[in-house]
Design a binder for these strands. Structure first.
Lengths: 195, 195
DNA sequence: AGGCCCATGTAATTTGTTACATGATTCG
DNA sequence: CGAATCATGTAACAAATTACATGGGCCT
């Protein structure tokens, strides 16, 4: 029996709104991938198993043999149990920070370029997040909806994304400038080490 | 042939200082695990393969059949190529943020508890990072060493860790308070959805 | 002598990715 | 009618974790 993070997440997402595997795959690709990447070859088998376990059921079959899943009472109870009784794994894998430990192997100008790329890439991500926030706020104003539970949670996540990107850009900019300013010392240390 | 992130990282770390598999495993466990977790069953086979590829060589065999590895010229070139010619995968897996999307399934007091746990856990991590920073600074003052390339890179990573934890705690505290303040609205929205 | 940490490995399993495969429906 | 997108699946592979297994050397 699979009890993976992905399975619990699928359950929780479907609890908010019945959805097909394809819909979930799209949701992951568009908005959830930054927190937990998942693609269809992982999603479809997981859904099949959850159905077998009685945590999901097919609530509707649409046009292109589409299967819409809905949670069962057991399914809801299971996500709640997961959230309440298990602690999240707080390790975060960050390849960029890992690479940082090897950056001294490059020349100072290459190290500066490394940070320039980071800054540019994260700036773009930040712009996207801010756009999403603006869209959400506009929609809330137009429809005048008080923030329901799910939308509120999603907006907290978005807020974290924005804070994260801003902080990251600030840190990377300072790092870049420090390397650029101390380019000579950097290259000397490198020479000494690499010969 | 393996060309994984881990393999390149091992190469880069050994380039800084010849090390045994056990030493690397310890280094990952103690300091690198927050950016890229890796344990000995992954490390030992990777080292064996890197040696076979001529990117590492056994530079010394110590007491308990310990093998110390050193990089070869090809090994150094390979890490440099990796750093220069490939872009880092910038996806970060964060189970806590994923769970956030399901948090509306819990009662407001449970959601508050969720954030309390986060705050406590990250506060402890922050204390650890700040301690490390203080130790590093003390050592630098005592030994008067100008920051060499590797130490400088490590300090940038530590700085990021500290910024990250501070920002995270601030965000989580605000989120916690907002949920606590709007507990009634939260529980109402939840009732409506779950029935 | 016994316990602890150093040190290296393999096996089994789970998780995640890439590639392959196929068919239905909509839209222009 | 052809292209794009919707929609679901499997196979093969790579990466990562957990458990199993073993032995050496150090310290008391």
């Amino acid at each position: 029996m699979r009890t993976s993070v992905l399975s619990r997440a699928l359950l929780g997402l479907i609890a908010a709104e019945p959805m097909s595997g394809y819909g979930l795959a799209r949701l992951f690709e568009r908005t959830l991938a930054r927190a937990w990447p998942a693609r269809h070859p992982q999603i479809y088998p997981a859904l099949a198993e959850l159905e077998q376990q009685g945590l999901l059921r097919v609530s509707e079959t649409g046009p292109r043999r589409r299967k819409t899943y809905a949670v069962t009472a057991n399914g809801v109870a299971e996500v709640q149990r997961w959230l309440r009784d298990t602690a999240p794994d707080r390790t975060v894998r960050n390849e960029t920070i890992l690479r940082l430990f090897m950056l001294w192997l490059l020349e100072s100008r290459e190290a500066v370029a490394f940070f320039d790329d980071e800054i540019e890439s994260h700036r773009q991500r930040l712009v996207g997040f801010e756009q999403t926030l603006a869209d959400d706020e506009r929609q809330r104003r137009e429809h005048g909806t008080a923030q329901g539970g799910i939308a509120f949670c999603a907006s907290l996540a978005l807020e974290w994304g924005i804070r994260y990107e801003r902080e990251y850009i600030e840190w990377a900019t300072q790092a870049r400038d420090r390397i650029a300013d101390g380019a000579k010392a950097w290259d000397n240390a490198r020479e000494r080490r690499l010969g």
